[in-house]
Each structure stands twice: as structure tokens, then as C-alpha cells.
């Protein structure tokens, strides 16, 4: 029996024939990276193969020297007798699934992925395969994310109802922040949007990639200016709500854009007054639909709520196994 094509190791998912890891959580000699979120893309690898956008994002995050060598993906290639190709994952700018093929056998590591429309990246492309590796972040049948446009209309209605209270929306710097801004723009809101300094570079990068975000201004106004604003929308990373930065706003409405906001207790624990259920991961419906559509001989599950997805596979008569990879964040939203 030959080596397995891919197998879990402490560092992450390993391909012995090609001698590379996919999204390893520790520095390795050669890494193939699906997308730029910090739990998938770490600094310190010998060489990194990823989409051009993911490499740019890693350089913004970690500085130019984040890896010994970088290789932008520009089409299918062969590594140690293994064919490797990248396919859109619909998650964030630059995100890709990685297909690994040897002879007749193909495994697709999908990284994080989403099926709802997201103008900052190409839509998810189902790739026929023998083994599909899926995340399970929202793999419980309670997660059925609503239409993001409805969530945005809730936000705009709240801004109109309480114009004197600045609306501070927590959103992670890569992907979610730009997604919220684009959704708000799509809903017809064209006033300036204020962004926390931690979002500046990532927003600039999106704009440079031709993704229009409209008039963005730094949320560095002083207290008097902050309190004079009407119907103000401020986007910030959730961690900013714990910093003194937030004190310049008088009685702000704290919101949070995340798939977790579907669970009331989650919103309350975080002191969120305006939960916005906006996710860049597949919900239960899209996850199970995707697996059914691709119909792989085996389903491998990386991180999240593996038990529920295992149970679903059992009910569907599918072969599935949890990979128990370490290092992925419990709550990557």
C-alpha cells in the first residue's frame, strides 16, 4: 500500500509524496495556504504557495519577510508527483480550495468556504473529488444564516431610529469588515463610513484590488467630533470595544457582524445590543448541500462541530472522519 496522499500530523495536514503541508499551524519547510486568516496562514514557513492575494495579505499582516520564499499560484503544478490546483472558495479575498491529485485519487482541502454571494471574491467552485475536507464551524442544524441584506436593513433602521448614537459594528479585519461595508453600500448608504485604524491597511488593499468600498474615513475623531456625528457608522475589530478608543463615543450602539450572533446567549455574553448574523462560512444548509453536491466517497472534517456533522453523515450513509487538527481557532469569525 502506498503512502496516504494526505494525512494529519501535529503540524497540520501533510502530503508525504509532495512533502508539503496545507495550512500548517507550526512553521514547516513548505506550506500551501488556503487563505489569509491568521489561524490558517502563519508566518515563518520555509516557502509558501498561495494565491497572489493571500500572499499579499500575509505580507500586510506579518511583514514582507513572513516566509523564506513565496510562490504565487498561477495555474496547476506538480509537486513530487502530486498534481496541485487551487479553486475559489468564496470565503474572503484570495481564498482557495486546494485540490491534490495522484493518479486516480483526488482530495480537496476546502479551507474555510461559503456559498453566499460575496463580491470580494470568486464564488465557491465545487470540484469533483474522492475525499472532500470540510470545515465544521457552523455545523449544527440551528445555524441557518439569514439573507445578509436583511441584517443590513436592521442596521440601517437602527441608525435612523437612534441617529444620535453612533453605531459601532465589530467585524474582523480581513473579509468581514469589507463585506459589511460592501453590503451597506449595496443597500444604498453612501455617507462616509468610519473605520478603526486596525482595518485601514486591509481596506486599502481591497480597494487596490478593485473592490469599491466608497468613502472611508479613519475613526480617529476627537470626543467633540464623535459626539456631533449623526447616523454615524463605525466599523472596528471586536477587540477595539475593550480599548479606551471607544470612550470617545457617547452611548454608542454596539453591534457585531458574525455567524455566531444567531445564538442569543452569544450576543448577550459579548454585550452586543445589535447582533448582525453575517457570516463568511457555510451554514448547515449550505454545508450539507455542498457535500451532497460533490458527493465524495469520504468526508473529512477539520475544525468546529464535528460530532453533528459526523451524525449527519451517519444518517446519510456517508463515510466520514474527524481529523482533529490542532491550532484552528474555536471561533474563527
Amino acid at each position: 500500500m502506498p503512502d496516504p496522499l494526505l494525512s494529519p500530523r501535529p503540524e497540520g495536514l501533510y502530503c508525504p509524496a509532495g512533502d508539503f503541508f496545507i495550512d500548517p499551524s507550526r512553521p514547516v519547510r513548505r506550506a500551501l495556504i488556503t487563505h489569509g486568516h491568521a489561524d490558517h496562514a502563519r508566518a515563518g514557513h520555509g516557502s509558501v504557495l498561495a494565491t497572489r492575494e493571500t500572499l499579499d495579505i500575509m505580507a500586510i499582516r506579518y511583514g514582507e519577510g513572513f516566509a523564506g520564499q513565496r510562490q504565487p499560484y498561477d495555474g496547476p503544478l506538480t509537486l513530487g508527483g502530486v498534481d496541485v490546483s487551487f479553486h475559489p472558495a468564496g470565503h474572503v479575498l484570495g481564498s482557495a480550495q486546494i485540490a491534490v491529485t495522484r493518479g486516480e485519487q483526488r482530495i480537496v482541502a476546502s479551507g474555510d468556504y461559503a456559498r453566499v454571494s460575496n463580491p470580494s471574491c470568486a464564488p465557491f467552485e465545487p470540484v469533483p473529488c474522492d475525499t472532500f475536507i470540510t470545515e465544521a464551524t457552523f455545523a449544527l442544524p440551528v445555524f441557518k444564516h439569514p439573507d445578509p441584506a436583511d441584517e443590513i436593513s436592521k442596521l440601517l433602521a437602527s441608525m435612523r431610529a437612534a441617529p444620535e448614537r453612533a453605531h459601532l459594528i465589530g467585524a474582523y479585519a480581513l473579509g468581514k469588515a469589507q463585506r459589511v461595508i460592501m453590503l451597506v453600500r449595496e443597500a444604498g448608504y453612501d455617507a462616509p463610513i468610519y473605520i478603526h485604524g486596525a482595518l485601514q491597511k486591509m481596506c486599502d488593499y481591497h480597494i487596490a484590488q478593485g473592490i469599491p468600498l466608497g468613502d472611508l474615513r479613519p475613526a480617529t475623531m476627537d470626543k467633540t467630533e464623535a459626539r456631533a456625528l449623526r447616523e454615524a457608522l463605525v466599523i472596528a475589530p471586536p477587540s477595539a470595544f475593550a480599548s479606551p478608543w471607544v470612550q470617545r463615543f457617547a452611548d454608542p450602539v454596539i453591534g457585531f457582524a458574525s455567524g455566531w450572533m444567531q445564538i442569543r446567549a452569544r450576543a448577550r455574553q459579548r454585550g452586543v445590543e445589535l447582533p448582525l448574523v453575517i457570516s463568511d462560512h457555510v451554514d448547515w444548509t449550505d454545508l450539507t448541500r455542498t457535500v451532497t453536491e460533490i458527493d465524495p466517497a469520504e468526508l473529512w472534517i477539520t475544525h468546529g462541530r464535528e460530532e453533528a456533522l459526523m451524525r449527519w453523515a451517519e444518517l446519510e450513509g456517508r463515510v466520514a472522519r474527524p481529523l482533529h487538527l490542532v491550532g484552528y481557532e474555536e471561533e474563527p469569525e
Partner: peptide
């Protein structure tokens, strides 16, 4: 079983049923 896993996660019976 899927319901039990969900209820365990959500923590509120009415909310779990409403979502699931």
C-alpha cells in the same frame, strides 16, 4: 441526536426549536 447536540450548544429549548 442532532437536536440534543444543538440544544446543548444553544442552551434554550424554545430558541433551539425556533432555529432548527
Amino acid at each position: 441526536e442532532l437536536f440534543a447536540l444543538s440544544y446543548d450548544y444553544v442552551g434554550d429549548l424554545a430558541e433551539t426549536i425556533a432555529l432548527i
